[in-house]
Design a protein around this nucleic acid. Structure first.
Lengths: 187, 187
DNA sequence: ACATTTACATGATGGCGATCATATTTAGTT
DNA sequence: AACTAAATATGATCGCCATCATGTAAATGT
């Protein structure tokens, strides 16, 4: 049955939303097209009316979720703390798409890689701009170094099978970033 | 045809070697059992004489490659430089298994997660011991923070579709680690 | 109202890949 | 030398999944 133009747009949005959660949670390969459609309250048949292929869905999902992901623009200290929290580690489905998906981008189409590159570029810029206390000359280094450490720490913490060591990776990385930032502060 | 006891052991070693390269290069899901066996110069049939399942192969491969990966024990500065080089970024198949596989471990069996955890623990220890110039109180923080940044930077650099930005992520992270380490040095 | 288009549902299809069954050949053993 | 057991090869099987084909009914335009 046909649905209203508006309803269709909402369906598409819901597909992208649930796809972004499922992909972050289980990875691109482990999520089937039918699973995404079911999670969006539809059946698999309508899929190709919205996207030309699963790869196309992946690329659009990345653009969608990276555009929505605007973290790091405000209070950087709070952002880093939340990023390196056990809560974020344990919430891959709703967490940072970079931490959840960046490593898998290597095996995706060039459209997906391009979307991810754009997302990373603006994320690095946002973090740099949120470092007013840091000398301009150091900003880019601090932004990139900190973000790399954050992403790496969350990936490692999620991989580790020992809660104590996993927590320690998060905490020590937070402390390492903290000292790194304050030591290059202009004040 | 049956082969000698010794030949079989060598076959098993070769299976693990090629599997570790293929998995690092293409990811666990994108590599089939038959592909591994062919790369090892065998056919798919003999596989289940060596391993009970693909998951079993993954777990053994991780233990194999993480035991072999002894980087970071010697000159730390050289290790960091090599790790954050374009050469390492472009050589996932032969590169650090943590950078290549850690993010995918979340979706693997507990045996695989356990193998990875052990590998990470010893890697962090090795880096800590390679930091003689750093105060003992700071060693763990520096080791974990640096390693997280290294892993994160390589993952990001591999995800980015723009050579200039990818190179910059590597270089800025190297510089960030450099200043971070020297500023907590005891000397 | 009617015609037409279209979004979605249901139901194939085809290929790939993990795993299993069986045959073959040869290393160990006696 | 003959026997047995084992390692690998060849050839199914079975399920999953991306994609396609077709039906249906409701929305939109006239």
């Amino acid at each position: 049955m046909k649905v209203s133009r508006e309803q269709m747009a909402e369906n598409r949005r819901r597909i992208l939303d649930v796809a972004s959660r499922l992909f972050r949670d289980k990875g691109f390969d482990a999520v089937s097209v039918a699973e995404v459609m079911n999670a969006a309250g539809l059946t698999h048949g309508g899929f190709y009316g919205h996207f030309s292929s699963k790869d196309d869905l992946i690329a659009h999902t990345l653009a969608h979720v990276l555009a929505a992901d605007e973290g790091g623009g405000g209070d950087l200290r709070a952002y880093v703390d939340a990023y390196l929290s056990p809560r974020h580690r344990d919430n891959a489905a709703g967490g940072c798409p970079t931490a959840g998906l960046a490593a898998a981008i290597r095996h995706q189409t060039s459209a997906a890689r391009s979307a991810m590159t754009g997302g990373l570029r603006s994320q690095i810029d946002r973090i740099g701009k949120a470092l007013p206390e840091v000398d301009a000359a150091d900003r880019r280094r601090v932004a990139i170094g900190s973000f790399a450490a954050m992403v790496g720490a969350v990936i490692l913490a999620r991989a580790i099978d020992d809660p104590a060591l996993s927590d320690e990776v998060l905490e020590q990385t937070r402390s390492w970033i903290d000292t790194g930032i304050s030591q290059v502060s202009a004040s």
